[in-house]
Computed example of a mutant assay.
Amino acid sequence: MNWTVYLSGEIHTDWREQIMQGAKQHNLPITFTSAVTDHEASDAAGDVLGDNDNPFWRDHQSAKVNAIRTKTLIQKCDIAIIRFGDKYKQWNAAFDAGYCAALGKPYITLHDHDIIHPLKEVDAAAMAWAQTPEQVIEVLKYTTSDC
């Protein structure tokens, strides 16, 4: 079976690349998907629908256009990896985790020890909490194996 893994969350580090490279090194049967990780492109996703002088409506349009991709990819994935970084608040990642939980999609959270408390509800619904991309790869190796 080929698994589809959705990578959600923080866009300022190379955690996605680390997980994809690790999966490739272990020949895991995984296809990875993700939201648009180019911040400027994501912010401008709705601009094609018309100019908005009000930043709220520009963000609103772009959020809806981005949601077409995000909702579709989460619905189609077998599991999601949801990364929370320490530099910015990833409200979108928290929303993705809630959406996964509502759909009954398993997900793994990936974050440092120092933000356990603010993520307690998100972690409580997760199937696992990892602190490193290597831990995620180990879980993926186990869950996608033929044993």
Rank of each mutant, 00 (worst) to 15 (best):
R16E: 12
A63L: 02
V139L: 15
V65G: 00
A94Q: 10
T31Q: 05
T37W: 02
W129Y: 02
V122F: 11
H60Q: 09
A80F: 07
N66V: 11
I30C: 00
A67C: 01
K87I: 10
A45S: 14
N27V: 00
P118I: 14
A128Q: 13
A41W: 05
K24S: 10
M127I: 11
K105L: 06
N92W: 05
G50P: 04
I74A: 00
T70K: 06
T4K: 09
R83Q: 14
D59M: 13
A97F: 07
T109M: 07
A41V: 02
V65M: 00
G98L: 07
W3A: 00
K71H: 12
A67K: 02
A23S: 13
I19K: 08
P55L: 15
V36P: 05
Q90K: 07
A126I: 03
W129A: 04
D78Q: 01
Y6H: 14
I30H: 00
L73Q: 12
A80S: 14
I11V: 13
Q75A: 14
L73Y: 09
T13Y: 04
D86L: 13
N52R: 15
D43M: 10
E17H: 11
I137N: 05
D96V: 00
F84P: 09
I82K: 02
W15R: 03
A97K: 08
H12M: 09
G9Y: 02
K24W: 03
L7V: 01
G85P: 04
P29C: 02
D78W: 01
K76F: 05
A23M: 01
L28Q: 03
A41H: 07
E134G: 09
A130W: 02
I108R: 04
P133W: 02
A130V: 07
D53C: 11
C77I: 10
V36Q: 13
T72R: 14
I82F: 08
L28F: 03
C77K: 03
H26I: 04
Y107N: 10
L103N: 11
I137H: 08
A94V: 05
A63K: 04
H26N: 15
I82M: 03
S34H: 13
A94M: 12
P118Q: 07
D146F: 08
D53M: 12
Q21H: 09
V122P: 10
R69H: 08
M127H: 04
I108Q: 07
D96K: 06
D53H: 14
F95G: 05
